[in-house]
């Protein structure tokens, strides 16, 4: 019980110092920093979309149809990234489209993460019949053609933002459950959990106090990666016409609109696609940095590598 005493008074300065340390470490890893930059930009842009967007993203203008980006002949700074077939401003649509990506990403991660973590904890901690039931279910569902399941559902349910957030976790929860179960199984074997059990700690306390902290780092990393795949899934479904429906806005939908004009207006497919790719790349880079920084073993390796690379004494 001793460890619970070390609390509030010392924690605050420790956290600020730790935060400063994290930022400093992040700056050293340029790729990870870029990832964090992209993700914070996405959040800022999504929140401040009405202020940032130069035009109403839905405003049509017959006189300004298919205007090219400003650096091409016929383009102007009025529409920096050009306009689409109805004269709508591409840049403004990308800015507003970020909202859908962010909401879908967060919503799917929240639902799938919660369900997957709870089931993974149940399976890993209880073992026995619960475990084999959940694992059987997982094995069966893993062999299931995921996207086709979405297609079947979307063929009978009218697609919308809410529908996407509800159906995407149907497949997405599995990775969380597998990860959590694995971590719990290995944490259960550690001496400190065994000690807690011997002392007579209740299962609830063991799970929340001793096992969950082990999960924080890998779960956070997985959540960032899954955030990216939810965005990709939304974009793909919207592109296929089975996701966000017009007049709502989404990057994938805009690529689909631009597809009709690949011959004379390449910018319509290009820019929303760059927005998707950049967001996903940012999340991937941020996640791979998180994975290394949050894992003590990886940190050690990296430190050792840093010492030997600078011609140091360590190696």
């Amino acid at each position: 019980m001793a460890q619970t005493v070390a609390a509030p008074g010392i924690a605050t300065p420790g956290i600020t110092r730790r935060f400063a340390g994290v930022v400093g470490e992040l700056w050293k890893d340029k790729a990870g920093f870029f990832g964090l930059l992209v993700m914070s930009t996405l959040i800022l842009v999504a929140i401040a979309a009405p202020i940032l967007a130069p035009h109403d993203p839905a405003a049509q203008s017959l006189s300004a149809r298919l205007d090219p980006p400003f650096w091409l002949e016929g383009g102007s700074l009025e529409h920096p990234l050009g306009t689409d077939n109805l004269g709508r401003d591409v840049l403004s649509r990308i800015i507003f489209g970020s909202r859908v990506s962010l909401i879908v990403g967060l919503g799917v991660v929240a639902i799938a993460g919660t369900v997957g973590t709870v089931l993974g904890l149940l399976a890993g901690y209880n073992g026995g019949r619960v475990d084999s039931l959940i694992m059987r279910w997982l094995d069966t569902q893993l062999a299931f053609p995921g996207l086709l399941l979405y297609l079947v559902i979307l063929s009978v349910v009218r697609p919308s933002l809410l529908v996407l957030i509800v159906i995407l976790p149907i497949n997405a929860w599995m990775v969380y459950a597998l990860l959590v179960r694995g971590v719990v199984l290995s944490a259960k074997e550690t001496p400190y959990v065994e000690a807690a059990e011997i002392v007579g700690a209740r299962p609830k306390r063991i799970i929340f106090r001793h096992i969950l902290p082990n999960l924080a780092a890998p779960l956070l990393t997985l959540a960032v990666l899954e955030f990216a795949s939810a965005i990709l899934a939304e974009a793909a479904l919207s592109f296929l016409g089975l996701g966000i429906q017009p007049p709502e806005m989404s990057w994938g939908l805009d690529v689909a609109i631009g597809r009709e004009y690949v011959f004379n207006a390449w910018w319509l497919v290009t820019f929303p696609g760059i927005a998707i790719a950049l967001t996903v790349l940012g999340a991937n880079l941020f996640a791979s940095w998180l994975r290394i920084v949050a894992d003590p073993h990886e940190r050690e390796k990296r430190f050792a590598a840093g010492v030997s690379m600078t011609g140091g004494r360590g190696a």
Partner: peptide, 22 residues
Amino acid sequence: SLTGLSMPNFWLGLLLIVIFGV
């Protein structure tokens, strides 16, 4: 590889269409 994996595949296809087809 990381950059390639970040591209949505429908967009990759369209880019190839724009570059090699159009």
